[in-house]
Design a binder for these strands. Structure first.
Length: 872
RNA sequence: GGGCGCUUAGCUCAGCUUGGUUAGAGCAUCUGGUUUACACCCAGAGGGUCGGGGGUUCGAAUCCCUCAGCGCCCACCA
């Protein structure tokens, strides 16, 4: 034998090698590793089109997924890694099960988050009154103070930045091994999304599902835009109760309590409960407000709570949502004083809207607060009340829940404005019924959907007074007198969509007529981001522009998403689908949990506890991270736990090593079906067949964590016991070896495929050592593959138990596992003894047993007595 | 105020739908072993009155009632 170094060491002649020459595993490395294998496979999958959607497949052969388009202006966090992996696991399972998986990817890049990011990133702000500057160059670093730029310039910057952000997201998602079809790609600001959003809106306008109305609207004074009920959140905020005296002749003193004394000038009534004995004499009378001395009615309404404060409330236009209800139901006056910028407007007392007994004094007092913010005005009004003697006691500090826009910093105001709405209130029953057509995973998440619908207090406001969004595709006529005809919008032909009405001109008009008497003006608003996102199935499926595709994927099979956006994304999607298609948008909703940090706080950027996902994937390995994400059940909030990733990492490595070992034993001989299977091999295959059945069932119930657990449990036992028992026999050249090789080959193939959805890289790596094609297009294991195997899992279990006892004896004696055993006596009942007898030869080999005695004793389950060989 | 979820070993979690081995796994801890599949390995050990109380049952982690703690969702919180 040559001692010179040969590059071809693996085929170096080793004449006494019991295994034949093998070509299997020519790509098999000496020391397999899961590190740095990702990029190779990502590239191979892309080149081979492994995940490309085949659109010739019929609807019932397709599994379609309404992938959540992540907000690209947000940061990447482990929550993305977690939930997107859970969806990918299901996608891979469905693909292997024979479904053609429609797995698109979108980026949510329109809307306020992007605007805000652009403002901060470049140091700019949008001023729609400025004309477009074609030579504008964005500053290198954030400019202070922000540069005012035109709307078109601003929108351009939004596009530039989102493109950058999207590239970062794409890198992460590829690295995570998502089996999305990158050709099925959309953005929520792109032309297709705009066209479909606008078409969806026009359809709903025409069928009466959308309407425009002037009404009290939730308003963020910083963003200067309306917001929807779904975007509210309560925040505990410090405030104070102020006891204020109103003037009446009916009672010696009349005191109300309020947290918003600055709205006194906007007061339009007092309200008490109809049964409240204290105020019976007041109902129907007029009382006078302090300071401004405006006469207001005292009215009864059941919403007034006698226990709260003094039991009688000051109704202002508008302090909160209850005021809106009272205002509407009691047909009260409108006296708005808070402007859209959050400051008190200048108003005139004595005018019709603001009558006063003493207009000049009222004006004097009010002029001190006009122009101030509500907070500044509040302090001043309290001083005024104190001076006038109408403040009873000093303000009492409290903490109470106040409504904020979820992205906002100051409490919401309610202003009267004209907005576009989508009808939801009258659909409530239908929407709940639709919700019950969807299979929720986990089922209890449906309760959140229903409780949201039951709590709706108005229709869905879809218009926003912002810039980077989908414009409403409408114009309004301007009368000869310059008045705008809001009631009869001009619609574009749908074939023209998408359009920007501030640039394009309605049919029959020309550019010169824009903004002119007798001409037209564009609707200035953009759509709420959810008005677009609610159409993701339509956008991904290219609704009406590609009806052939759409009918192959809609209604979709799966909507994966997080639970905090049930009231927004999920709800609004059901609304649109119900109205546009009289259908649910999908048949399954898989709701992922949150990632919590070890203190059980939700991981978020503001808490400063976010782990950078790309670093995580690089240091742990993608499969390890995917294992962690896969082992969490849907809907369950999960602690970020790198120990769980370590376990996944070990599993992936073990799969590589065990596979290498098995492939080495298989050799390259054409696998031949053995004449008869050894009972131990058959037993192992019988157990594995049960795993296939149980794992498949778990997947069909959207319990991927269970499927993983089953396969993993089997696999470790398979390595520790079966491989040890069978490896000596497999090396021989007899019938027993044939049986072992057959069983090993089948088991390896099945196991790799069972793990493939979870650990796509490690399993693909092994597959490539052995077989052609991608494992991710290989069929999901079926029980039929096991043929006539009728294996009783008890045999392997019994033999393994004996092997365990022998190991225990060796361990207790602090001996090596390789030390030989001079005598083993097994006492058991006939059935157990029979099972063990079937694995006798393998047991003797694996345990290094010199003498094995089987003793039958009825009623004895299993007793193993072990005599170790003399250490000498 | 209404609703949902959770509470099992030091840690992270299964098990509960359909009640029945001695309540499981991994990690961590401890004790050993091994270096021709794998030290990212192997073997073994210790560790739990299944949140409290009550009930149903021959039998309850599992079913029912109740209480508590934690988390979340919803609500017209002057």
């Amino acid at each position: 034998m040559s001692t010179s170094s040969s590059p071809d060491t693996s085929t170096d002649a080793v004449t006494d090698d019991p295994a034949p020459n093998r070509t299997i595993g020519v790509n098999m490395p000496e020391r397999p590793s899961i590190d740095n294998i990702e990029e190779r496979w990502i590239q191979a999958w892309e080149e081979q089109g492994t995940y490309t959607f085949d659109r010739t497949k019929h609807r019932d052969e397709v599994y379609s997924i309404d992938t959540p388009p992540p907000t690209v202006s947000g940061s990447l966090h482990v929550g993305h890694v977690f939930s997107y992996t859970q969806t990918d696991v299901m996608a891979r399972y469905q693909r292997m099960s024979g479904k053609e998986v429609f797995y698109p990817i979108g980026w949510d890049d329109n809307g306020l988050p992007t605007e805000r990011r652009v403002q901060n990133y470049y140091g700019v702000r949008c001023d729609p009154s400025i004309p477009y500057d074609p030579n504008f160059v964005a500053p290198e670093s954030p400019h202070h103070p922000p540069i005012a730029i035109s709307r078109p310039n601003f929108v351009e910057l939004c596009s530039v930045l989102t493109t950058k952000d999207e590239a970062v997201f794409e890198r992460l998602f590829r690295r995570l091994g998502l089996s999305v079809d990158w050709r099925q790609h959309y953005t929520t600001i792109g032309p297709r999304a705009q066209r479909i959003s606008q078409r969806g809106f026009l359809r709903m306008l025409k069928n009466g599902q959308a309407y425009r109305q002037e009404a009290p609207t939730l308003w963020d004074v910083d963003f200067q835009s309306s917001v929807a009920q779904a975007e509210l959140e309560d925040r505990e905020t410090v405030g104070a109760y102020h006891r204020i005296r109103f003037h009446t002749k009916q009672m010696p003193t009349l005191v109300i309590e309020t947290t918003r004394p600055e709205l006194l000038a906007a007061c339009v009534a007092l309200v008490a409960h109809p049964d409240d004995p204290r105020y019976q004499t007041l109902f129907g009378t007029q009382v006078t407000t302090p300071l401004f001395e405006v006469e207001i009615p005292v009215l009864a309404h059941p919403l007034a709570e006698p226990e709260k404060g003094s039991g009688i409330a000051m109704v202002c236009t508008f302090g909160d949502l209850t005021d809106v209800i009272w205002w509407r139901e009691l047909s009260l006056e409108t006296r708005t004083i808070v402007g859209r910028d959050g400051r008190l407007e200048h108003i005139s007392f004595g005018a019709r809207a603001f009558p006063s007994i003493d207009p000049s004094r009222a004006q004097l007092l009010y002029d001190e607060i006009a122009g101030k913010t509500t907070k500044q005005a509040r302090a001043r009004v309290v001083d005024q009340l104190r001076d006038s003697g109408d403040l009873v006691d000093e303000p009492r500090a409290i903490t109470h829940a106040v409504k904020y826009y979820e992205r906002g910093e100051r409490p919401l105001e309610i202003v009267s404005s004209r907005q576009w709405y989508v009808k939801t209130l009258e659909l409530a029953d239908d929407l709940i019924r639709r919700g019950r057509e969807i299979d929720w995973h986990p089922p209890f998440m449906r309760a959140r959907y229903e409780s949201w619908i039951e709590g709706l207090n108005g229709d869905w406001n879809i218009s926003r007074q912002r810039f980077f969004g989908v414009p409403f595709p409408l114009w309004y006529r301007i009368g000869e007198d310059g008045s705008i005809d809001d009631l009869h919008p001009i619609f574009p032909d749908e074939a023209r969509l998408p359009i920007d009405p501030s640039v394009e001109v309605p049919e029959g008009y020309d550019t010169s007529q824009r903004g002119m008497p007798g001409g037209f003006t564009a609707d200035p608003d953009v759509m709420d981001t959810w008005a677009t996102s609610s159409l993701t199935p339509e956008i991904a499926g290219n609704w009406e522009d590609d009806p052939d595709l759409f009918e192959r994927i809609f209604p979709m099979d799966l909507r994966p998403q997080a639970h905090e956006i049930i009231r927004t994304w999920l709800f609004s999607s059901v609304v649109r689908s119900h109205s546009l298609h009289q259908s649910v948008p999908w048949t399954n909703a898989a709701i992922s949990g949150w990632i919590l940090d070890p203190d059980r706080k939700k991981m978020s950027k503001s808490v400063g506890n976010v782990v950078v996902p790309t670093e995580l994937l690089e240091t742990k390995g993608t499969d390890a991270v995917r294992y962690w994400a896969s082992s969490a059940r849907l809907g369950v909030d999960t602690i970020f736990d790198d120990r769980q990733m370590q376990i996944g990492r070990r599993l992936a490595i073990k799969i590589l090593n065990a596979s290498k070992f098995i492939l080495t034993q298989l050799g390259d001989e054409q696998a031949q079906a053995p004449r008869a299977l050894d009972p131990l091999d058959e037993s192992m295959l019988g157990a594995l067949r049960s795993v296939v059945t149980a794992s498949t069932l778990a997947f069909s119930n959207y319990e991927q964590a269970r499927a993983l657990e089953l396969s993993e449990q089997f696999f470790w036992d398979f390595c520790d016991n079966y491989l040890e028992l069978v490896k000596n026999r497999a090396y021989r050249r007899d019938e027993g070896a044939e049986s072992a090789k057959h069983a090993l080959g089948l088991a390896l193939s099945v196991l790799l495929r069972l793990f493939a959805p979870f650990l796509p890289f490690a399993t693909e790596e092994v597959w490539s050592w052995w077989l052609e094609g991608s494992i991710h297009r290989a069929p999901w294991p079926r029980t039929e593959e096991f043929g006539e195997v009728s294996g009783d899992p008890e045999i392997l279990a019994a033999v393994s138990a004996v092997l365990g006892e022998i190991r225990k004896a060796k361990t207790n004696a602090k001996q090596s596992m390789r030390v030989s055993v001079s005598r083993v006596t097994i006492t058991a009942d006939a059935k157990r003894l029979g099972e063990i007898g079937l694995g006798r030869g393998d047991l003797i080999d694996a345990g290094s047993i010199v003498e094995l005695e089987l003793v039958e004793r009825a009623g004895q389950d299993l007793d193993v007595s072990v005599e170790l060989a003399d250490p000498d």
